[in-house]
Amino acid sequence: MNPELVDKITRKFPDVAHDISLDYNVFFAPKDDYLRLAEFLKSEPDLAFDHCSDLCGVDYLDYLEVVCHLYSYKLGHHLCLKARVTREEPEIGSLTSLWSTCNFHEREAWDLYGIVFTGHPDLRRILSDDDQPGHPYRKDVPLENDEEWLLRDEKTAEDYGLPLGWERSADA
């Protein structure tokens, strides 16, 4: 991407950090600027990011990150937009109104990482069961079938469809 365009973005949004250590430009947006920056990237004629290639959540233990890869069919440049949210309050604006493809991406990020996208029209679980406890891709979720974690929200084993006495059979 053209360095002048990078300048243009950082001048308009002084709080946005920029990183060029990768082979593409990364912009770290503060939570409040995230939606406005995305809108700017889409609507500005010499940026014209019309394709949202990917959006996902990443868990860095101290915080959660929303990573969004944008591409412009018109101008052929590529950019990565990132925003951080806390684990306690994982809320961020939804990009669905800008790119309708974000609908499924954001539902997936909510399902697997528990990131709440405010303004999303239909934020439901998508890949896991409706009664799945917690958000399974977070790093603090044990990889093995951990009884304590599974039952921490005081549901019984039967609530999760497990057969009676499954704890005992696991010991044997």
Binding site: D54, V58, T101, F104, H105, E108
Partner: peptide
């Protein structure tokens, strides 16, 4: 972390 962008997933959307 690995994220797979699956075209079918978005086409279903």
């Amino acid at each position: 972390r690995v994220k797979v962008r699956a075209p079918s997933f978005l086409h279903i959307g």
